[in-house]
Design a protein around this nucleic acid. Structure first.
Lengths: 369, 369
DNA sequence: AGGATTTGTTTATTGGTTGAATTATTTGAC
DNA sequence: GTCAAATAATTCAACCAATAAACAAATCCT
């Protein structure tokens, strides 16, 4: 119904095809030739050549030495994402540290800065000012490498609304913080929940499943829901609050006012106190998620990752028992591969994914400058 | 990442714009003129004229008498969806009846056939053969009105995989039924879960929220999840199994092998036996869904609709208590507006939505014939 | 009756893809 | 050592679809 509600699309065919070519290069293991791209996309070799010219001129692609190939014929020129093209600035603010990283277009982390300090002692404005300093340093480092930043994204451990407002971030002690107003980097800024961005980080590393749940166990418990390769943020951006899913209706009282929330049985302290209880509670809650969303993969991150071996059996037992379709297709449980950097990495990924998905906008901007 | 993985799009600009124009007409309360469509879409009047000509030639739009308007200027010709254009065949098989309906392009039910009979007594092949007879009758009735059917969709109370296979439909006693193989109507056939299609039916009636949960309480309990105007089917098409979400971990044993499933506390018998218990259990399970997916609207359908007034307070009490963001934005609970026909209507809607979203395909087909 | 106004069509132009022909660069055979 | 075959990439005329601007049609207002 509202699928193609977009204004119009006249000759933005080119924008689409630029993205198609760029993504084809990005998703290729080897360095594809123009002819290979033509075959993969269905576009004419002529068209691919023209598009590639634009992408090279805009510093998004580079031509490499002859790609390894056998047989007769003129050797192809290999194409790859330009590591000196536009990069992404990933930012994170958490209870006891600030962090920033620069990721280039190919997905490689080029610079990484961390400041350890308890952010709960500072007002939001001061914390964000400190983060601004860190961001400036990262930007200089990027500039020294010849990398221009296409934008920035910030991971926050709290609820985030569409405009980058944070109504509440309990563990930071924030309330109604207008992040974009307090953190002006002169770059497009995206603000999102920490678990959401960590999920995106995992999506990028895991070549496999495009549909999975990322569960982050810290003091609270958050989850990022990735459906068909895209993060689902919910109607108001407040999805993934798995920590307050009811596990034992008449159980322990929770600081949210309800009782029996998962957080009381599988939060950081609860895991330390009784891993078996935590695993069972997690298994019950995760079974509910799988029954609802039909997910095939669950990734345990944050504080759960180091405890994975101790939790696995208990969780899987509940999944086998409570997931209706467990007999038809198993649910895969795995630990997150990115460590504590997941959210920051995911944030940077959001920026470069933006460039990859709409190169035409970047080209227009780069040309205007 | 995989957003624009589509093969190519050369001059399928036209396909997109045809859809845009058609949807603009469909979503207009009044019968818009070509000029009004031009203003709404941003396309030129000339372009709109050309597109409208194609749509009229393909019997998707009709030109009406002058639309009511005031002021100077040449009077406009009103445009509207053609009620004699392609229609959709909606089918449903359930425990104690078979049903078929013909819905025209404007969304009006033109014909409706129901056969009451216990389907549990028949093997799947026989039940589908009976349904085929009903479908043929519906098709004749449509032809008598000058309506050609663009396709058919079937609602089944069970799990459905991508290819239309039904691995299991417990209440019908089906197992591994290949529906498309047993029901050849000579039309493109879509098979989907009953709750999913009912949710689509509600989406069409409710002009409002494009993100909601539809819960259908029959013997079992199913749910259709509509996110941003689109049904979410899950990785394997098995989403929405809310009936087996755990409510009381150590509670009543369920026929699925687990214990404490929602179905045991809010299934048809349980509602009749103790509405308050059912409401509390529903409230707990629905709170989990809202915490996970950040839904603003929940629609109670199927057997819940007539019991709505008796369930409402109990459910809302739990939602207020257990939904983390309840204080920030309320969750709206309402009864389904379509009755028992919801799934069948939704099925037919799927077909006509397909035509509305891709009119170019229909035009090509119509021209080829 | 005549100007104003709005609708819808016609015509030349432009952006972008296609397909065929052409050029470029290698391998392999005689 | 030269030539044919093969593959890669570019050039160029043709075509499709949208745009902008001019034009025709049909009404209202004075």
């Amino acid at each position: 119904m509202n699928a193609s509600r977009s204004p119009v699309r006249q000759s933005s065919v080119r924008a689409h095809n630029l993205a198609l070519v760029l993504q084809t290069v990005a998703n290729s293991a080897d360095r594809p030739s123009r002819a290979a791209i033509s075959a993969a996309t269905g576009l004419t070799r002529a068209t691919v050549s023209a598009l590639v010219d634009d992408l090279i001129a805009g510093r998004l692609l580079t031509e490499l030495d002859p790609a390894p190939r056998t047989g007769a014929g003129r050797p192809a020129a290999g194409l790859a994402l330009n590591p000196d093209g536009p990069g992404g600035l990933g930012l994170e603010i958490n209870v006891d540290y600030l962090a920033a990283c620069v990721v280039d277009l190919t997905g490689v982390v080029r610079h990484r800065f961390v400041t350890r300090a308890d952010q709960r002692l500072l007002p939001a404005a001061a914390a964000l000012a400190d983060l601004g300093v860190l961001a400036a340093r990262a930007r200089e480092a990027a500039a020294a490498d010849g990398i221009e930043l296409a934008g920035a994204a910030l991971a926050v451990p709290g609820l985030v609304t569409a405009g980058g407002l944070v109504p509440v971030a309990p563990n930071l002690g924030w309330q109604d913080v207008d992040v974009p107003a307090l953190l002006d980097l002169g770059l497009p800024l995206t603000v999102d929940n920490e678990a959401n961005l960590a999920a995106i980080g995992e999506l990028r590393t895991d070549g496999g499943a495009p549909t999975f749940l990322y569960v982050s166990g810290e003091i609270g418990i958050g989850a990022g829901i990735v459906l068909n390769g895209e993060l689902y943020r919910g109607g108001r951006g407040w999805s993934g609050e798995i920590g307050h899913v009811t596990v034992y209706p008449d159980g322990r009282p929770c600081r949210c006012g309800a009782s029996g929330c998962l957080e009381q049985y599988a939060g950081q302290e609860a895991v330390a106190a009784d891993p078996d209880l935590a695993a069972a509670a997690l298994g019950i809650a995760l079974s509910a998620v799988v029954n609802l969303l039909d997910l095939g993969v669950i990734v345990l991150g944050g504080g759960y990752a180091p405890e994975f071996d101790r939790l696995r059996d208990g969780i899987e037992a509940e999944l086998r028992r409570r997931v209706l379709t467990a007999g038809l297709a198993p649910v895969t449980l795995r630990a997150a591969t990115l460590g504590p950097d997941a959210a920051m990495r995911g944030a940077a990924d959001v920026v470069i994914t933006g460039v990859r998905e709409d190169p035409a906008r970047w080209l227009a901007r780069a040309q205007a400058v």
